[in-house]
């Protein structure tokens, strides 16, 4: 195992709303692909139960930031704390050690992820997709997992589709199954990466409705989206990213309604155009 240099522990630039300690603390995170800086010094705290929407132009690093949070991407510098644990690293004295793969897999259980292209398992039915993790990762009894899966399918409005394979579901239905699959692991935090941008316009609403319900139930959510209407209505905070950095953050009404930064205003105008 290799020791890595401790990250510079600069205090978070963006302060969370007052109240509970943050469930996610992103501290000065950097990530490059080759010489290209995809995430360039991002700091962000998310409080339990908070819904944060991340907006920004294509290539501004939104997806990369989400993938850093659940360690699908390994960060170059900085620190990410999720639910009290330092992501990917073990602290021993003044040294940090990379965690073994098993531990990283365990840490990922705190977050659920919903992908732009659904990524359902095509060889499994909707129900089997949902129970896969509970049964084969958490070791839950199959019967119990099936019961919970039926409840989740009902919650996302797909009780009838338990035995359907993904190819026989519409995009909106697939994405709702994907949300149920993530929820089945009982995560503390849900990450959404443009969950509606691969959908036909008439199917966007049904997915947003499920997400709205989820937000209302108190789930902590970080949502990358171009749906400004959804952000305005559901988000506690909106974060605008550009060139891998956070340009502006604040209450949805402020960032979307009267942005302080010219770049934010230009982006919002372009999306609404």
């Amino acid at each position: 195992m290799t020791a890595v240099t401790p990250p510079t522990m600069t205090p978070p630039a963006m302060t969370p709303p007052p109240g509970l300690p943050p469930i996610v603390s992103i501290i000065d995170v950097h990530k490059s692909f080759g010489t290209f800086k995809a995430v360039d010094g991002v700091s962000l705290d998310v409080a339990p139960g908070e819904v944060v929407c991340i907006i920004g132009a294509s290539g501004s690093g939104k997806t990369t930031l989400l993938r850093c949070i659940n360690q699908l991407v390994q960060i170059d510098r900085g620190a990410i704390w999720v639910d009290g644990e330092l992501a990917g690293l073990r602290i021993d004295g003044d040294k940090l050690y990379h965690l073994p793969e098993k531990e990283i897999a365990r840490q990922r259980l705190a977050t659920g992820m919903v992908f732009q292209r659904f990524n359902l398992f095509p060889h499994l039915t909707a129900l089997e997709n949902i129970i896969e993790g509970p049964v084969h990762v958490l070791g839950k009894p199959r019967r119990e997992a099936i019961e919970e899966a039926h409840a989740l399918l009902k919650r996302v409005g797909l009780s009838e589709k338990a035995d359907a394979y993904p190819t026989n579901l519409s995009g909106g239905q697939q994405q709702r199954v994907a949300i149920a699959r993530a929820l089945a692991m009982k995560p503390k935090l849900m990450l959404f990466d443009e969950p509606t941008s691969a959908l036909d316009p008439e199917l966007v609403g049904e997915v947003l409705a499920v997400m709205r319900e989820l937000a209302a139930s108190g789930m902590t959510m970080i949502v990358v989206t171009h749906e400004l209407g959804f952000a305005r209505e559901v988000a506690d905070r909106v974060v605008f990213m550009d060139h891998g950095a956070i340009v502006e953050t604040g209450p949805a009404s402020q960032v979307l309604g009267s942005p302080k930064e010219a770049r934010t205003g230009a982006f919002i105008a372009a999306v609404l155009a």
Binding site: N70, L72, E101, K102, A105, R106, R108, L109, T111, G112, M113, F115, R117, N119, L120, F121, P122, H123, E132, G133, H136, V137, L138, A178, R181, A182, M185
Partner: peptide
């Protein structure tokens, strides 16, 4: 598709479990 590995990881699977349960059957 690589998205299948990522989805498997996102529900807490290790690389080998993802291969066995998700990738090989496909």
């Amino acid at each position: 598709d690589v998205g299948q590995y990522e989805a498997a990881k996102s529900i807490g699977m290790t690389r080998l479990k993802a291969l066995r349960r998700i990738v090989f059957p496909q």
